[in-house]
Design a protein around this nucleic acid. Structure first.
Length: 306
DNA sequence: AAGACGAAAGTGGTTGA
DNA sequence: TCAACAACTTTCGTCTT
């Protein structure tokens, strides 16, 4: 999908389309250009090219929030039985019994898991699309028997984390951990496990995605927010971001931006919101200073203030 | 007194043999 | 499977406002 509009505020053409929020946001100045956009894209995922061609928009949409997407198939009880006798008959009954057992086991599991998933998702105020994605991931995990040996809750948390990352509405591992009551390490472990097993590729999370949330939690102005995005881009160009924790970088750039805009927040405050320590912020923004030569700028501003 | 700073030691995860 | 390694945290003492 392309978006060719210009930002009416600053004229920038760098507009970000946020499907889950239904908003178009200017990357430069943070202005919400358009909101409550209707998502016209198809709501299902495609597994292979063969099936995707057969998809038609008829009937109720497929939903991964339902354990069998409303499309279960059972081995029948009557009708085609008359052709079988003896061995065939007993085999048939055995199959039916197992199918019943397996499907009820999976169903029970999914029922519980999806309820848990719903709870955690709403606790974190996650958009519906992420919830669906997580449900899909979880369903695949169950079908592949990846839940065995792991607690259901931790797999749910892992699936949610993966879904968040994919939809670029990042929540930190800490937040997932707090919402689900699962140890942070455990969430990370199962997250890595299921994404590896299911072959889900995830882009490394972008620090910019954290900025709006952190900024609003710190009650910073929009100017500061876009300032920090600016700093973030400069940092990225100077190769300062690779290999570092995205939250730390986001926190540091916010801290610096707040300083530059005379909206000073203590390192402690920023650190708490971002879920990193003050030390990390110090290290990051020390790097920002030396590499980006922000030092002079800051001194300049201080002089004006004094 | 609170915040900022930095050194040093410890932790969990990744990588490469 | 193990050791080396980088990033990050914890802790604590010192400096600045």
């Amino acid at each position: 999908m392309t978006y060719t509009q210009k930002c009416p505020e600053c004229g920038s053409t760098q507009l970000i389309i946020h499907k889950e929020r239904g908003e178009v946001i200017c990357k430069k100045c943070g202005l919400v250009v358009e909101e409550k956009i209707i998502d016209h894209s198809q709501e299902w995922q495609e597994f292979d090219s063969d099936k995707s061609e057969k998809r038609r928009r008829t009937g109720a949409p497929l939903s991964y929030s339902r354990y069998d997407m409303g499309l279960g198939t059972d081995i029948g009880q009557r009708g085609d039985l008359f052709q079988l006798e003896g061995k065939g008959m007993s085999k048939f009954f055995r199959l039916r019994k197992w199918q019943y057992r397996i499907s009820t086991a999976i169903e029970r599991n999914l029922k519980l898991a999806l309820a848990e998933l719903k709870r955690v998702a709403s606790y974190l105020k996650l958009p519906k699309s992420v919830e669906e994605e997580a449900a899909r991931v979880y369903t695949m995990a169950v079908q592949r028997g990846l839940v065995r040996g792991r607690s259901m809750e931790s797999v749910v948390a892992g699936a949610l984390y993966a879904a968040c990352r994919r939809h670029e509405v990042p929540r930190t591992l800490d937040e997932l951990s707090e919402a689900s009551g699962i140890d942070k390490k455990e969430v990370g472990r199962t997250y890595r496990f299921i994404t590896r097993e299911l072959g889900i590729r995830i882009l490394p999370s972008n620090p910019v995605d954290y900025i709006p949330r952190f900024a609003s939690a710190l009650k910073l102005t929009a100017e500061t927010q876009s300032k920090s995005v600016e700093i973030l881009e400069m940092a990225e160009n100077s190769e300062l971001t690779s290999g570092r924790g995205p939250t730390g970088i986001a926190a540091a750039s916010l801290y610096v931006a707040a300083l530059l805009n005379n909206e000073k927040r203590t390192q402690r405050e920023v650190a708490d919101i971002a879920g990193v320590t003050e030390v990390t912020i110090r290290n990051r923004y020390k790097e920002l200073f030396t590499k980006l030569k922000l030092k002079d700028k800051l001194k300049h501003i201080k002089k004006i203030a004094a």
